[in-house]
Design a protein around this nucleic acid. Structure first.
Lengths: 337, 337
DNA sequence: CTGAAAGCGCTAACAC
DNA sequence: GTGTTAGCGCTTTCAG
């Protein structure tokens, strides 16, 4: 029971009175014309000896690890965790394991993560990218490792690379039309530009475009530049004008909504009384805040799952029809508009 | 640039005009008395050839992978994601990678996860256990793989195994005293028993004990047995009596709080008007619900970090003074009691 | 139906 | 200062 030394396929062979080849065949299910007696014998010995095949040795020969490397921008984010959940649901049933690394939204850290995973000889890579130029990802292409990007946008990504995102552009446009229809004349976007690949960027583009088209006034509060006090002060000023010019605050990602709510609480502000509020988010907790916040809900789990499925297909040389996958967001009605 | 075949340490040696030993020494920083010229030459060739050492080959020789295996009960849970975040913060700076697997709160799935990770020859294992008897974990002990349990409880865990949890017992006792002090006479615990290792179990024990001691009436709603409609109905009945006998609902984990809130909303119930509400949770979002929910906040990130640190210490043969680590919870005051 | 033996890429004695 | 070489545990041709 208590095995002191590592036990190898060789010992199993010896004890079972067969050759290593036969054991290897047994392990890999190549039972072509192996006698049932042999099979049983081997099975028995494996149990007795408590034999466990070494993944490293296997990998050295077979050049396939059944490991997928995943790199996210920030693991502490709920979004990332749901992304991962989706990937896992696609990969685990196909018997793939996952190494999860965190790039901390940094270019250098991400490069190191990629390097590490390529050294592990992963069968594929799913990345929520922190670097904005596809050149940065050449090492992956050169290593011939199948690649999928999720959530964020890398310039000049070739069509051979899988890319799964929310319908950021369309959802943002629809949102502006809805706000205009509801009588809002001024949109205050709250964003935070951490990385140049962020999904917030296409959202802001689409909003800018739609606002111009619809004749709405647009302000942008980038929280990368200011602290919470600054946000509070700014919201105070804006809400004062909301009486004349109906105003809606639009938060471009879930974590920002929390900060807006904190500021609003401090100001004793009420939605939609003092201004409208709408946020992109990934989780339905907003339903329980106040009388429910109006949300554009992403589906990170589906994004992750689709990326996993498409990547597996590519690994198996059955690439998806299109590598460009868009996952729809869902408009959750609340009482904050 | 575009390397067709895998390039090995041998090629590097050949091109650099040195032996593989020298290259290996260079790679591992054994620059004992290596001439600077040689070092530069090797460095150059590595770059030119785009050489990447194979982790598998390395592992076969050195018997250390610098990989830690992590198994959680349910990755889609916010708690698990924060646990992981904490572990990562401890492990990544020490240059350890992480393989994250999901046991789906199942004994068999967990066994398979363990098997997979042992085959990968991980340097250590951190598990949020789904099996309640330590015998189930013997394979890990036999493989001499350092082990840490987090969050949940395994019977007969030997002191050689690291164990990091919240202060479940103490926090539950304190809570009961607080409720009694506030005039509550009836406690309704909402729990859901998925696995026999759940931290909810010691919480319930402590509450049971304290309730008896303090003369409080105790009811237990186990949601494993009923659906949301059942919860709603039960709460309706209970709240009707709350006028005579001041009642507090205590949710034993974050996700249950959401279900309680959903039921309460349906009933048009208000806290603390109709009854008191308090919940164990892992995240401060409850602050924004209503006027703020009273919480006993766990610190999963710290739990994960401590487990990672203790595990690393053990791997390095510098085991922590105590393997029994208790992370304090924090009482967050709200307006629901 | 089964075996012998080569070799995957790397490290670490042991030599010089 | 640097090189030779024997394996690590496994898969897989090729040969019976």
């Amino acid at each position: 029971m208590n095995s002191r030394k590592t036990i190898t396929i060789k010992e199993v062979a010896k004890v079972a009175g067969v050759s290593v080849t036969t054991v290897s065949r047994y392990l890999n299910g190549n039972l072509g014309k192996m006698s049932v007696a042999t099979q049983q014998k081997i099975q028995q010995v494996i149990q007795d000896l408590n034999y466990r095949p070494s993944a490293a040795a296997k990998n050295m020969r077979s050049d396939s690890t059944h490991i997928i490397g995943v790199i996210v921008g920030d693991i502490s984010n709920v979004f990332a965790s749901m992304l991962f959940t989706g990937m896992y649901k696609a990969l685990q049933p196909q018997n793939y394991s996952v190494m999860l690394l965190n790039a901390n939204d940094g270019a250098d850290e991400e490069r190191e993560c990629v390097e590490k995973l390529l050294q592990q000889n992963v069968d594929g890579l799913i990345i929520q990218p922190s670097r904005s130029n596809f050149e940065d990802y050449y090492p992956i292409v050169n290593a011939r490792t199948p690649l999928a990007f999720v959530d964020r946008y890398v310039d000049a990504t070739p069509p051979s690379v899988i890319h799964v995102t929310s319908d950021n552009y369309e959802a943002s446009q629809r949102m502006c039309e809805e706000l205009a229809g509801k009588g809002y004349r001024h949109i205050v976007v709250v964003n935070i530009t951490t990385v140049g690949t962020s999904a917030q960027i296409p959202r802001l583009h689409a909003i800018t475009e739609a606002a111009r088209r619809l004749g709405l006034r647009l302000s942008v509060l980038d929280l990368a530049g200011g602290d919470n006090a600054w946000l509070t002060d700014t919201l105070r000023v804006i809400s004062a004008n909301s009486a004349q010019e109906r105003t809606a605050v639009v938060s471009l990602m879930g974590p920002l909504l929390l900060r807006v709510l904190a500021a609003a609480r401090e100001l004793g502000m009420d939605f939609p009384r003092d201004m409208g509020l709408l946020s992109f988010d990934d989780w339905e907790w907003g339903e329980y805040v106040g009388h429910g916040i109006d949300l554009i809900l992403q589906d990170p789990e589906t994004i992750g799952r689709k990326a996993g499925e498409a990547l597996l297909a590519t690994i198996r040389k059955q690439p998806p029809v299109s590598n460009e996958i868009v996952v729809p967001t869902k408009r959750v009605l609340g009482h904050s508009l």
